[in-house]
Amino acid sequence: LDITFHVDGKNIHVHGASEEVVRIIEELIKNNARAEEIKETLERLLR
């Protein structure tokens, strides 16, 4: 699975993920999660 995301100002662009995963990533970023935390969360979800 190949998910890429980047933050452009306040806009979060996520590619290669389901809508549910996109929402989770957006929440994590809004809550100022570190990249490592986001990665760990995604790995748990995608197991």
Results as ranks from 00 to 15, higher is better:
Leu1Asn: 09
Asp2Thr: 12
Asp2Ile: 11
Ile3Ala: 05
Ile3Glu: 02
Thr4Met: 09
Thr4Val: 11
Thr4Ala: 06
Phe5Trp: 09
Phe5Asn: 02
Phe5Leu: 10
Phe5Ala: 03
Phe5Pro: 02
Phe5Tyr: 04
Phe5Ile: 10
Phe5Ser: 03
His6Lys: 10
His6Tyr: 13
Val7Met: 04
Val7Gly: 02
Asp8Glu: 09
Asp8Gly: 08
Gly9Lys: 01
Gly9Asn: 04
Lys10Cys: 07
Lys10Trp: 15
Lys10His: 10
Lys10Arg: 09
Lys10Leu: 15
Lys10Pro: 02
Asn11Glu: 15
Asn11Asp: 15
Asn11Gln: 14
Asn11His: 13
Ile12Lys: 00
Ile12Glu: 01
Ile12Val: 07
His13Ile: 10
His13Cys: 04
His13Trp: 06
His13Gly: 02
Val14Pro: 00
Val14Met: 03
Val14Lys: 00
Val14Gln: 01
His15Arg: 09
His15Met: 10
His15Glu: 06
His15Phe: 14
Gly16Arg: 06
Gly16Phe: 07
Gly16Pro: 01
Ala17Gly: 03
Ala17Ser: 03
Ala17Leu: 08
Ala17Phe: 03
Ala17Lys: 01
Ser18Thr: 14
Ser18Met: 03
Glu19Tyr: 15
Glu19Val: 12
Glu19Leu: 13
Glu20Trp: 15
Glu20Val: 08
Glu20Arg: 07
Glu20Thr: 07
Val21Arg: 00
Val22His: 04
Val22Phe: 09
Val22Asn: 02
Arg23Asp: 04
Arg23Gln: 09
Ile24Pro: 00
Ile24Val: 10
Ile24Glu: 06
Ile24Gly: 02
Ile24Asn: 04
Ile25Pro: 00
Ile25Phe: 04
Glu26Ala: 09
Glu26Phe: 15
Glu26Trp: 15
Glu26Leu: 15
Glu26His: 13
Glu27Gln: 12
Glu27Tyr: 15
Leu28Lys: 05
Ile29Lys: 02
Ile29Pro: 00
Ile29Phe: 05
Ile29Asn: 01
Lys30Glu: 06
Lys30Cys: 06
Lys30His: 09
Asn31Phe: 11
Asn32Cys: 04
Asn32His: 12
Ala33Phe: 09
Ala33Leu: 06
Ala33His: 08
Ala33Arg: 09
Arg34Glu: 07
Arg34Met: 07
Arg34Val: 07
Ala35Tyr: 15
Ala35Trp: 15
Ala35Pro: 09
Ala35Gln: 05
Ala35Cys: 07
Glu36Met: 09
Glu36Asn: 08
Glu36His: 12
Glu37Leu: 13
Glu37Ala: 10
Glu37Met: 12
Glu37His: 11
Glu37Trp: 11
Lys39Met: 15
Lys39Gly: 08
Lys39Asp: 06
Lys39Ala: 11
Lys39Thr: 14
Glu40Leu: 14
Glu40Arg: 14
Thr41Gln: 09
Thr41Lys: 08
Thr41Ser: 08
Thr41Pro: 00
Leu42Met: 07
Leu42Phe: 03
Leu42Cys: 02
Leu42Arg: 00
Glu43Trp: 15
Glu43Gln: 15
Glu43Ala: 15
Glu43Asp: 10
Arg44Leu: 10
Arg44Tyr: 14
Arg44Gln: 08
Arg44Glu: 05
Arg44Asp: 04
Leu45Met: 07
Leu46Val: 05
Leu46Thr: 05
Arg47Thr: 13
Arg47Leu: 14
Arg47Ser: 13
Arg47His: 13
Arg47Gln: 13
